[in-house]
């Protein structure tokens, strides 16, 4: 047999990770988003070490104390206190934990469910596919927050129920995305060649096809992370999410509503926290899409 062939191709081509980082880095916003995201993550993990006080501890002498740079503020309550005298900074720091909890749980539930259903729809005979997709369309036809509200109303208001409701509402996006990629991958030759090697249906679905559909799903996951935070905050604001005294950002906003004119800081800081986190994640999601979607690559 010929010998010969492959002298060349010794040299390493850039690895996938390196290439990914190259494209990701191109997008300045995404990199900033990533750093902010990592920052929030760090704060959430080390909340007990970073927070000056317990988030539920009430300092009765310091009700509605303004942030330190304002008249009457002090550095011991850097961002001021709320109507019950709780330190706002500590509550925000602990709030990051809840936001992360919400984001992670929602994404995990929605992706596992969505991917499984999407895979089934992609491989199913036409009638089953149609049933699944129409069902998803029905869910998508409702305004997402409204549907989540109804679900929470049925399940009872609590953070966990809110999370489950949001996961259910977000799920159809994953189903559609997975199904679309599955259908385009399914007819490629490598799938046929796995079939010829004798691979069963489950193996085809999870081992052969799924890994090749992950890129858009990862992007969607990043985006729904921020959606989840936003929706849980909205539910909290409506009193259907985390219950007081949980230091959840949306709930904090809701509690502070009546003081909006007297004490701007009790509404502004939780609002800013939500805004910055959501913005950072969205920016990062954009970068992820650029880096993972080969069609947008420039070379």
């Amino acid at each position: 047999m010929s010998d010969a062939t492959l002298e060349a191709v010794q040299v390493e081509r850039p690895g996938r990770l390196k290439e990914f980082w190259y494209y990701f880095r191109e997008n300045r916003g995404a990199v900033i988003g990533l750093y902010v995201f990592l920052g929030v993550f760090f704060v959430a993990v080390f909340a007990p070490l970073l927070a000056p006080y317990d988030p539920t501890e009430q300092f009765r002498d310091h009700l509605l104390q303004p942030p330190f740079w304002q008249e009457g503020g002090s550095l011991s309550y850097a961002l001021g206190t709320d109507a019950l005298g709780r330190d706002l900074l500590s509550r925000l720091i602990y709030g990051a934990r809840f936001s992360f909890f919400v984001g992670v749980v929602v994404v995990v539930i929605a992706t596992t469910g969505g991917i499984t259903i999407g895979l089934i729809a992609g491989f199913a005979p036409r009638w089953l596919d149609t049933i699944i997709m129409r069902l998803m369309d029905v869910i998508l036809a409702f305004p997402s927050l409204l549907l989540a509200l109804v679900l929470v109303a049925v399940l009872g208001p609590s953070l966990l129920n809110a999370v489950i409701a949001i996961a259910i509402v977000l799920q159809p996006h994953y189903v559609r995305l997975t199904r679309a990629s599955v259908i385009s991958e399914r007819h490629k030759d490598y799938v046929t060649s796995a079939k010829v090697a004798g691979a069963g249906r489950l193996r085809l679905m999870f081992v052969t096809v799924l890994p090749n559909c992950l890129a858009p799903i990862i992007v969607q996951a990043a985006l729904s992370f921020s959606n989840a935070i936003l929706d849980v905050a909205a539910l909290g604001f409506l009193g259907m999410g985390a219950q007081p005294p949980t230091p959840e950002w949306g709930t904090m906003l809701a509690e502070a509503r009546e003081f909006i004119l007297r004490a701007w800081w009790v509404v502004t800081f939780p609002g800013l926290a939500i805004l910055i986190t959501v913005l950072a994640i969205n920016l990062m999601g954009d970068g992820l899409r650029d880096a993972l979607d080969p069609k947008l690559k420039r070379s």
């Binding site: 010998d3 010969a4 062939t5 002298e7 060349a8 040299v11």
Partner: peptide, 22 residues
């Protein structure tokens, strides 16, 4: 008769004649 090897790519461009490895 074959030409051994492959066309050089971005990372293995020979210094002298581009065809020299083959």
């Amino acid at each position: 008769p074959t030409i051994p090897g492959v066309v050089p790519g971005q990372f293995d461009r020979p210094k002298g004649c581009l065809f020299s490895p083959r």
